[in-house]
C-alpha cells in the first residue's frame, strides 16, 4: 500500500516572520540552540525577526548583547566548539568587518586545523544590500568575502519559504554558516509551510523556466530578475531564472543543465562586479559548458563604488529591472 504524503499546510508570511518561524521551530526542537545579538530580545531585532522569542524561550536562550561584534561572534565560536548551537545576529553585514578574525581565522578553520577533532555548528545571521538610503557602511553586499573562505557555508534566501527552510537547515548543519538576508526582503510576502520545513543547503531552485537564456542570481535580484523575465516574455524572450539560494555549497548541476538547454548565461547580483561571486559562476560555465554556449557568459552587477546615500544615486549603482531586461536582450539579440 502506498501512502500519499499529506500536502503540508501553508500560510502567507512576511520574510521576516518566516525567519522567526524557523528560529522558533529550531529552538523548540533542540535545546542546544541559543540565539544572541544586539537588541534581539525584548525588542525583537532591528528587523523584527526575533520578535516574540524572548517570551517563549526566556532570557537564557534569547540574549541581548552589548555592541561588541568581535566578542559576540567569538563567543558563538566557543559555544559551538563546546556543545551549543548558537545563532548570532549581526545587525548589518557591513559589521562583519569587526568580527572577521573570528569568522575567518577561527570559525572557518578550527575543524581543519585541529585535524577534524572539532565541529563549529553555528549560524551567523545578518542582512545586507542597498535600497534604504543607509549609505556606504550599512548597504554593502559582501557575500564574496565569505564565499572565498574554505570552511564556511554561505546562504542567501530570496523568498519567505526558502528563508524558513534554509535557516532551519543552516542551524542543523555542523559547520559555520553565514546566512545573509536582504533588508528589502523582510517585508515581502509568500506562502510558507507552517509545519516543519527544511530546505537542504546546496540545492538551487529554478524559479522560472525558459529556453532562450539562463539568468543565475540570488537574494533581492531574484525578484528583479523575475520581473525582468516577465517583461522579456512580453517581447517573446523566454528567460529561465535560477535562484542559487546557497552560494556555498553551489548547485553546479542545476546551472550547467540549464545553460546546456538555453546556451546563454547572464549572472545578476547586487554586489560589486569586480571579484564578485558572479565571476565564479561565469567561469564555472566557461570551464564546464563552453561548447554549449552561443555567446560569452555575461555578468550584470554592482558598480565599483561604495553605496551612495542619495536615493537616485543609490539606484544608479545596483542592477534594476530594466538593466536586466537590457542585458538579456543584448545577450539574446
Amino acid at each position: 500500500m502506498q501512502l500519499k504524503e499529506a500536502p503540508s499546510a501553508t500560510r502567507e508570511m512576511f520574510y521576516a516572520e518566516a525567519l522567526g518561524d524557523a528560529l522558533r521551530q529550531e529552538l523548540r526542537r533542540d535545546e542546544r540552540v541559543v540565539i544572541f545579538g544586539e537588541d534581539i530580545a525584548a525588542h525583537g531585532g532591528a528587523f523584527q525577526v526575533t520578535a516574540g522569542l524572548l517570551k517563549e524561550f526566556g532570557k537564557d536562550r534569547v540574549k541581548n548583547t552589548p555592541i561588541s561584534e568581535n566578542g559576540i561572534v567569538g563567543m558563538a565560536v566557543g559555544a559551538a566548539l563546546t556543545g551549543l548551537r548558537p545563532v548570532v545576529e549581526l545587525m548589518y553585514v557591513d559589521f562583519m568587518g569587526l568580527a572577521m578574525d573570528q569568522i575567518v581565522n577561527q570559525a572557518a578553520q578550527n575543524r581543519f586545523m585541529f585535524g577534524g577533532q572539532a565541529r563549529v555548528p553555528m549560524v551567523l545571521r545578518t542582512q545586507g544590500g542597498s535600497g534604504r538610503g543607509n549609505a556606504a557602511q550599512h548597504s554593502k553586499s559582501l557575500e564574496a568575502w565569505v564565499a572565498h573562505v574554505a570552511g564556511l557555508k554561505v546562504v542567501m534566501p530570496s523568498t519567505p519559504a526558502d528563508a524558513k527552510g534554509l535557516l532551519a537547515a543552516a542551524i542543523r548543519d555542523d559547520n559555520p554558516v553565514i546566512f545573509i538576508e536582504h533588508k528589502l526582503l523582510y517585508r515581502t510576502k509568500g506562502e510558507v509551510p507552517t509545519g516543519e520545513h527544511v530546505v537542504p543547503l546546496g540545492v538551487a531552485d529554478v524559479k522560472r523556466e525558459g529556453s532562450d537564456l539562463t539568468i543565475v542570481t540570488w537574494s533581492r535580484e531574484v525578484l528583479f530578475s523575475l520581473d525582468a523575465a516577465a517583461k522579456l516574455a512580453d517581447e517573446g524572450i523566454a528567460a529561465e531564472v535560477i535562484d542559487v539560494r546557497t552560494l556555498v555549497p553551489l548547485d553546479r548541476e542545476t546551472i550547467l543543465r540549464s545553460v546546456r538547454k538555453t546556451h546563454r548565461l547572464l549572472v545578476v547580483h547586487e554586489a560589486v562586479k569586480r571579484a564578485g561571486y558572479g565571476a565564479e559562476i561565469a567561469s564555472l560555465v566557461a570551464e564546464e559548458a563552453f561548447d554549449d554556449l552561443d555567446a560569452p557568459p555575461k555578468r550584470l552587477a554592482g558598480l565599483e563604488t561604495p553605496i551612495p546615500y542619495a536615493q537616485h544615486l543609490e539606484k544608479s549603482v545596483v542592477p534594476q529591472v530594466d538593466d536586466i531586461v537590457h542585458a538579456a536582450k543584448g545577450l539574446v539579440g
Binding site: 557591513d94 538610503g133 556606504a136 557602511q137 542619495a310
Partner: peptide
C-alpha cells in the same frame, strides 16, 4: 542629497565630514 552637500550626496546624515574644520566624519560604525 544635493551636489553642494558636504559629501556631494554620497554620505547623508551618518557620514557628514568637514575636513576643512577638522571634522573627520560622522560614523556609521
Amino acid at each position: 542629497g544635493r551636489e553642494t552637500g558636504y559629501c556631494r550626496g554620497r554620505g547623508g546624515s551618518m557620514h557628514i565630514a568637514d575636513t576643512s574644520k577638522g571634522n573627520l566624519g560622522a560614523n556609521g560604525i
